[in-house]
Simulated scan of single mutants.
Amino acid sequence: MIDPTHVFDAEDSIRPTVRETPIVHSRALSASVDAEIHLKLENLQRTGSFKIRGATNYVTTHLETLQETGVITASSGNHAQGVAFAANRYDLEATIVMPESTPRSKVEATESYGASIVLSGDDYGAAKERAYEIRDRDGATYVPTFDDWTVIAGQGTLGLEVLRTRPDCDVLVVPIGGGGLISGISLLVKGLNPSVRIVGVQADGASTIARSLEKGQATTLDSVDTVADGIAINSPGTKPLSVIESHVDEVVTVDDDAIEHALARLLETDKVVVEGAGAAPVAALLSGAIDVEGEVVVPVLSGGNIDLDVVGDIVQAELDRR
């Protein structure tokens, strides 16, 4: 397991590539939940999500090897773009395997960073298997999505930015897919300020971490179903789960209606565009899943990569509910 020193080292490694994203006060959300809400706008990160942090730290840490082997990974979105961007930054050959159902906009965005794209399989699991086959055939190095300490340390740099900007933070609310982001943040934050309460948020239809904690063992879901595709993971990472068990105070779940409402609310009142995963922390606040009355709260808006037609559908559904 890593500690805060690894996150400080990661920040030094990624800073030439990764932006420090702003934290802004939300007057409207603060009034709605009777707390002081400050939004961590990671949707404004390069490539549109936090994933570039872990990918860049992995690349810089293993750069000498990767210059010989190149990199490969499987992803249908944010991790794909993070790896492609980091590889391009350090002149590495990169191959990204994406499911055949991946929206063309995400394929083109990943391709724009110089990666070679292979479309294979109906879902992430099938794409990952194909990536492993190519890795074994060509000798490329596979870049993990979340179950890796180097990646986790890179994601933890987001927590450093929060503590520097809002040292008065009482509660940090973080979306959870495989657990890489919240494990990196919690290792750093709890190591420096144990009094900060860290709450993870999953979608009801992809609650693999929540169920694993309830059962006391890693639990794989037969399927996932949520509008928040960025956290639609069916199995937790072994390393992230071990950190969440020891460092995260609470994990809650929210349904898709709450996520869609939060996404529309952020767009309407704060003029912020996020994807479903990025809206999940705000969904937990607005739905009352977390009690934060009177506290200083930082929800992490983890990404903003969402198709325009999806935004339109969500906004229309929100208008229909009024």
Rank of each mutant, 00 (worst) to 15 (best):
Q155H: 15
I134N: 07
F146L: 01
G156P: 07
I176S: 03
A115M: 08
V151H: 01
L158Q: 05
V162K: 01
Y124M: 04
E108Q: 13
V189G: 00
K190E: 10
E111Y: 12
L172M: 13
I152D: 01
Y124P: 00
I152Y: 06
T141E: 14
T110S: 03
T110W: 11
D123I: 09
L160P: 01
A115E: 07
A115F: 05
G178P: 04
R135W: 05
K128Q: 11
G184R: 05
Y113P: 01
W149N: 15
S183H: 02
V162C: 01
T141I: 11
G154D: 07
G156E: 13
V107Q: 09
D122S: 13
G179C: 06
S183V: 01
G139V: 10
D122G: 11
V151I: 15
V151D: 00
L172V: 13
I182Y: 01
G177C: 10
S112K: 11
E133L: 08
Y142C: 05
A153S: 14
A109V: 09
D136R: 14
S112I: 12
T145E: 02
V151L: 02
P175D: 05
E108G: 00
S116L: 05
D147L: 05
L158M: 14
G114N: 10
L187H: 03
P175T: 10
T150H: 09
K190W: 09
D147S: 04
L172N: 01
S112N: 14
L160N: 10
T145Y: 00
D147K: 03
P144K: 10
I176T: 04
D170Y: 03
P175C: 09
P175I: 04
D138V: 05
V143F: 08
G159S: 13
R130W: 01
L163P: 14
L119I: 14
A153M: 11
P175Q: 08
S116D: 15
K128T: 07
I152P: 01
T145D: 01
T141Q: 11
S186R: 09
K128N: 12
V118N: 07
F146K: 06
L172Q: 02
R137C: 02
V174L: 09
V107H: 07
G154E: 09
G154V: 06
I117Q: 04
T165P: 00
A140E: 12
G180E: 11
F146T: 04
G159I: 11
T165F: 09
G180D: 12
D138Y: 12
V118E: 12
A153F: 12
Y113D: 08
Q155N: 14
I176A: 06
E161V: 12
K106A: 02
G180K: 10
K128L: 12
D147V: 09
K106F: 05
G125E: 13
Y113K: 03
V171N: 04
V143R: 04
L119P: 07
I134V: 07
D148R: 10
D148G: 08
I117F: 07
G125C: 03
V162G: 00
C169K: 01
R164F: 06
G139W: 10
D170K: 04
V143G: 00
A140V: 00
A153P: 13
I176P: 00
I182S: 00
K106Y: 08
S116G: 06
Y124W: 15
V118W: 05
L158Y: 02
S120D: 15
G121I: 11
S112C: 07
A115H: 05
R166F: 08
D123W: 06
E161T: 14
R164A: 13
Y124N: 00
I117R: 06
V189P: 00
E108I: 13
I134K: 08
